[in-house]
């Protein structure tokens, strides 16, 4: 009879973690919808494009970050290598974009 007497404790710990996780997901989701609304209104109100375009890009980057880190769990342990590969991919893509912007149409 060596039953694990800590089961309940582990469960409550797990439940606590799940609740935190869910709260984070909902907050991120709400924020992303909020960002999307900002983007929409910014374009609809006809603010000058020199301001709107950088704003949209910044919002997009933040949303991609949320997507990766919260929805796709890149913030969790054990995702270091996918993260490294994604950053490697971003590096190569950036290199290509820099090339085409800077070298070809100098």
């Amino acid at each position: 009879m060596t039953e694990n007497t800590n089961t309940n404790k582990i469960n409550s710990f797990q439940r606590e973690k799940n609740r935190d996780e869910m709260r984070q997901q909902i907050i991120t989701f709400a924020l992303m919808i909020f960002f999307t609304m900002i983007a929409f209104f910014a374009v609809m109100m006809g603010i000058s494009s020199t301001f709107v375009i950088p704003l949209l890009l910044v919002l997009a980057v933040v949303q991609v970050g949320f997507q990766f880190y919260y929805f796709m769990h890149m913030k969790d342990k054990g995702h270091e290598i996918p993260a490294a590969l994604i950053y490697g991919g971003i590096f190569v893509t950036a290199l290509v974009i820099v090339t085409f912007v800077a070298i070809i149409w100098w």
Binding site: L95, T99, I104
Partner: peptide, 12 residues
């Protein structure tokens, strides 16, 4: 267009 695009893509 631009022919150099091919060279860049090919060598990247």
């Amino acid at each position: 267009g631009n022919t150099v695009i091919w060279q860049h893509l090919f060598w990247i």
